[in-house]
Nucleic acid binder design. Structure first.
Lengths: 101, 101
DNA sequence: CAAGGTAATAACTTTTGAGTATAATAAAAT
DNA sequence: ATTTTATTATACTCAAAAGTTATTACCTTG
């Protein structure tokens, strides 16, 4: 995706959020939001422990570039990868009810 | 993996669990257990709703064969795939503390 | 402004999951 | 009982994530 074009959308009078709604379905947006929120929690958990990506590579066995891509949201990581990264942070995944607002 | 050989391990006096501990690290076993537990919850959620894999394909956009393999535990699905499947079941993923026993 | 660690990116190979089509199995119905 | 019909599993191709290695920004701090 072209990030320059995205930033420039404001130049033609529309916010990125407006453009986004035209390009993606509401399901895609909802899912993307969930993904971003989950990844955000992983980043927070890592930073709260004061652990670098390199250190987390040692602890989890997942390579630093993978962790970087995962945190940047440029991949949709596999379940195993997420679980490996979460374990040394003292976290795991759980299935919970979806509350819609 | 050869399931016949696994079942036959009892014939030489060792349980599958014993053999498993020799083949895999404790981290791998813990992760696998988590994965199985999570997948189990997805299967349960689907069956409680009385929805077939085919129907869930319609609702989630994830193809039936993917759902089948996911439930069989023969793949480690991507985060997107899990979220897509969970959404129509009224569920989502959350990061929770890992309690060890 | 060097030196250190940290995170991001890139290029490339290997591995594995997703998509497609089809087959096997199970359940219903006649 | 055998012919649908629904449901789940398999085989194959293609796309994408993981792994590998190296490099490059990015900061902070001496």
């Amino acid at each position: 995706m072209n990030n320059e074009a995205i930033k420039d959308s404001s130049a033609v009078g529309r916010s990125w959020e407006e453009v986004r709604k035209e390009i993606f379905t509401s399901e895609e947006i909802a899912e993307s939001n969930l993904r971003v929120a989950l990844i955000g929690e992983i980043i927070k958990a890592r930073q709260e422990k004061g652990i670098s990506q390199k250190k987390l590579e040692e602890l989890s066995g997942v390579k630093q570039p993978i962790i970087a891509r995962m945190e940047k949201g440029s991949t949709s990581p596999q379940l195993d990868t997420i679980l490996k990264v979460l374990a040394p942070l003292g976290k795991t995944l759980a299935i919970v009810p979806l509350e819609q607002k």
